[in-house]
Structures are given as C-alpha cells and as structure tokens.
Design a binder for these strands. Structure first.
Lengths: 204, 204
DNA sequence: GAAAGCATACCATCCAGTTGGTATGGAGGC
DNA sequence: GCCTCCATACCAACTGGATGGTATGCTTTC
C-alpha cells in the first residue's frame, strides 16, 4: 500500500511465470537460471532461496502450469451445454479458439518440457506426466456420460479417448512449430473435432 | 581390410547417427559436442572439420533423419496392397509396429528437436519442418487415390489428413514420454487408425 | 605433394550452485 | 509500549567445472 515498488505478486510466482514463458520459447536446457531471474526481476540469491535447484523450479512450474490451465478450463464457458456430448465437443472447440496467439504463448509448457527431459530428469517427467494426466482426467466424466447416452456398446475406451484429445493437441503444437504457423494447429484440431463427433454418434 | 579398427562408416555418418540417438534421449541443448564425439568415437577436431558449428550438425542430422526414415518407409511391406485405402491403413499399422522398442529409439528426432529450437534456431526449425512435411507428402498420393475411390465428395483436405498422421504420431510420442510407457503411444495410434478407416469409408 | 581427414591442446565464456550477508516483520518477554 | 530474537525474503559477488569453438600439426589418400 505504501510502496509502489512492492511487486504485485511475490518473487516465487514471478519466477514460475517467467519459466512458463521462457521454457516454452527456448526450451529447458537453453533457459539459464540467470535469464529466469532477469525475466522475473529477481536476483540469483532469491532464486535459490525459493528453489533448491533449477530442477526443483521445473517441478514447481509444472504444478503451476496445471493450476493455471486448470483454472482457465474450469472458468471457460464450454461447461454450459446440458448434453455431455455437447460439452466434449465444446471443449475441443474451446481449445481451438486458444490457438489464436503466437506459438510460444499458446503451446503447452509440460509437453515441451517432458519431450526434452523425459529420460534424464525423472522428477520433471513425473510432474509433467501428472499435469497431462490430470488435464485428461477432467474430460473423462463428460466422455463417459456421452458414451453411455449415445454409443454405450462402442469398443473404445473412455480414458483413451480423453488422452487422445491431449495427444492431438500436443502433436498439433509440434507440427505447427515445424511449420512456423499456428493456423496449421487449428486445421489439425479440426480432425480431432470430427473424430470425436463421429465416435459419439453426432449426426452432422 | 587390414585394420579392424577401421570404422565401418565414416566419421561424419557416425556423428550424425550419434546425434539421432543422443538428442532423442537428452534433447538438443543438453547434448554437448563432447558427448557427440565420444559416442561417435571421434575427436573434437574431427567434429569441427565436418561441421562448421553444432547447429550445422543439427541441420545435417535432420536431413539424415529424413533419409533414414524415408528409406525405412520406402522399404516397408505396406506398399504391397493394391487398394490405395489399404495402403494408407497399412502405413498406420506399420507405424504402430515401430512402437515396440524403448521410447528413445522409436520417437521422432525432428519432432523432439523442433519443439526445442523452433523459436531460437530458424535454420534447424526449417530443416525439421522440411523433414516432417516431406514425410507427410509421401502419403498424399495414396490418400488422394483412396478419397477419389471411396469418398470423392468428402469435405476434408488430403494434405491436411496426411499431416494429421504425423500430428497424432508426434503427440503420441509426447504423451508416451510423459507416461514413461510406449504402450500408451500404441493405444493413441489406434485412434488414428480408426479415424482414417472411418474417413475413407472402411466398413469394419 | 597437396588436400582431406583426423588428433591434441587450448581458450573465452557461460553455467548452476555457493557464500556470506542485509532488510523486514512478527512473536514473545518484560 | 518497547526491545530482543529469529525466521523469511532477498541480494551481490564469487567459484569450479563444463561448453562451443579455435589453432595447429600429423597422417592417410589420391
């Protein structure tokens, strides 16, 4: 209240937010602790006060990412439809609308991170795995309800389809990065939308 | 002939092969030139004799990856079916069979690489983009022929579906890495197989 | 004998992490 | 109310090792 210089959020959160941005843009190993500190407006001593190692920051950032995206999805309008199938399809449409900005800001932090560290940093990999699995899990109830209502005897697995939404999104980010063009990702998510509609018996 | 120590392949190729393995396991930035040299059984002087910079090796490795995978696919049995739709579906089945080994050896070099460097190393990104686009392009003829034969009026784009096969594979690698389990990838590719069958009018 | 291929020794820079310290604010004794 | 104690938050300067890259010379091949 008295100090204008008092930061809006604490140093720890600023470091985590900086990690989300910088790692998505540069990758994990190429993002130095010094760069993270500079981006967060924090000194190195402060960094290692809040996080024992760089890897510990990565784990915390993966959890932070789960919180941020979880809140984004929970607050989105796609939950409105009364029909579970409509909610599933609205989720996919919602994810497509998020593909508007530049690549670095719309791609998935844990997806980029785990691709790089899966074999070398087990703690980081597990944190990323938990974030992705947790996100997919939020879809399962709607998918299960839609399946029960429209195609109860279909031979596909609910959890597998929930994960498939994340698979296509992660893949879409990779091919969009390779093409250097976000619109590529939207075209790929359209296939996911069509597939989900077909599986759930949507009649056009 | 006289020397057992004489390498079977030249130093340049050994460096490229080492790059495919190490970068897929550790990521680009975390793979040092020294490690590449050690894995290839080559000294640093030799490395910089063949490649001006580490980035130049990366570009060459992306091209090398395109050659290796191109030859693998071209030599595979999936081209046998006379029907173009069967060839498309056989390609997907073929890719699924490749998911047998451990993650580091069955994942995509250019996919991992581009995810990490897309914003910081334009030359690497373009080389990876060309490799992915080139691979997708080899599918277009079969997909176009299958579409003409079985669903000529469908509203999806041939090139977009060809790319979607790569999208799902790339995404499957990411979620499998996050789960630490290759079998996850096979389950995800099964969705791709089902989708392609549905789009191309396969009747079970 | 010239050039390509390869090896050794070396360098400037950057990296994660450490050291040793200051500022702040709340708890508890008196 | 005031002072001491102490934990938390933060900071500047430093370190040992690793990193990409270079300089230079040897050796095999054509």
């Amino acid at each position: 209240m008295d100090h204008r210089s008092a930061p809006a959020v604490d140093a720890r959160t600023r470091l985590l937010d900086a990690a989300l941005d910088l790692v998505r843009a540069r990758g994990w190993a190429a993002t130095s602790v010094d760069e993270l500190c500079a981006a967060a407006g924090v000194t190195k001593g402060s960094f290692f006060h809040h996080f024992k190692t760089k890897e510990a920051l990565g784990v915390a950032a993966a959890v932070h990412w789960g919180d941020v995206t979880g809140a984004l999805v929970a607050g989105a309008a796609y939950h409105r439809p009364a029909d579970p199938r409509d909610r599933v399809l609205a989720y996919i449409d919602f994810r497509a609308t998020l593909l508007a900005d530049d690549l670095a800001s719309c791609t998935c932090f844990v997806g980029t991170l785990v691709q790089e560290v899966h074999a070398t940093h087990p703690a980081l990999r597990d944190a990323c795995g938990a974030a992705i699995a947790g996100h997919a899990a939020t879809l399962e109830a709607d998918i299960a309800a839609a399946k029960a209502a429209y195609c109860p005897t279909a031979d596909w697995d609910v959890a597998s389809l929930a994960l498939f939404t994340q698979t296509v999104l992660q893949g879409a980010f990779v091919v969009a990065k390779a093409a250097g063009d976000v619109t590529v990702a939207r075209g790929q998510v359209a296939h996911l939308r069509r597939y989900a509609g077909m599986l759930l018996g949507e009649t056009r």
